[in-house]
Write a protein that binds this DNA or RNA. Sequence first.
DNA 1: ATAATATACTACAAAAGAGTAGTAATTATA
DNA 2: TATAATTACTACTCTTTTGTAGTATATTAT
Lengths: 137, 137
Amino acid sequence: MHFSKTTEYAIRVLAYLHRHDETSHSVNVLHQELDLPYKYLTKLMTELVKKGLVNASRGREGGLSLARDAHEIYLCDILEAIGESMEHERCILGFEKCDASNPCALHDQWVKPKELIETMLTTTSLASLLQNRETKL
Amino acid sequence: MHFSKTTEYAIRVLAYLHRHDETSHSVNVLHQELDLPYKYLTKLMTELVKKGLVNASRGREGGLSLARDAHEIYLCDILEAIGESMEHERCILGFEKCDASNPCALHDQWVKPKELIETMLTTTSLASLLQNRETKL
DNA sequence: ATAATATACTACAAAAGAGTAGTAATTATA
DNA sequence: TATAATTACTACTCTTTTGTAGTATATTAT
Ligand code: SF4
Ligand code: SF4
């Protein structure tokens, strides 16, 4: 009942890029600031670049920055870029079809939490995430 | 953002045992009825027996049945028996300490879904799960 | 040009989760 | 007692996720 490590990393990195968006940041800086495994990060960032969430510029003075306005990057976009997107549509008991007309035993209990999670994912943008600049990343 | 397979299996098996509690059931029956991998199930059931959720009787005519009243087996008990218990207490961004006084960036957005999930886990018993006998297992 | 500093790519390794195989031990019943 | 049906145990395999290593390639300040 949690995000994958990769998802955690992605959210934290993107939030960091937004919080310090006056300039771009190298993978090495992100690695140090957020204490994430360096090599793993390079792969992840390459992926996020491909998916159009991040801009990368190479060479000396290069680095990474957000490709889109932080108001237009929602948590669900991040999950989708990583491939964990429709996880939350899966039936909580593992059935293929998540069908309210043929519900699983946990249906009634799961509907509300599921709704809230979905709301959180679809309405939380990177920008809204950082209203309070005192929070941990 | 989901349960582990093992957790799914455990919930479904225990729910089945409750739904058909007039008798005990062999692993083979559970395997066929719920379409779960046989050998994997034997391991899981042995574990649930050790944890005191299930009674096992060996030999011919043996089988498995709930060890406690279904009204007293909550989802959180099942998670705990499997070792996924406090997963939902973990910080959603992966930090060790989940401390509201030193919150992570997702804190405000995560609090409500988290609460609902916790409520679901602590208040849903096997018995309440099967009010409606028409649901999938 | 050159050196420094970046990202990009390929391949592999380690760890955890999920699943399989074979056998031993137990027990009701014929 | 012999047999069949059952759980219990040990060890292995497969797959996915997570993490590491080394190298190639691009860019820019000097
Ligand atoms: S509880 Fe019902 S609606 Fe919810 S995921 Fe399972 S089958 Fe789908
Ligand atoms: S969001 Fe805040 S309270 Fe929730 S898990 Fe993360 S640190 Fe803990």
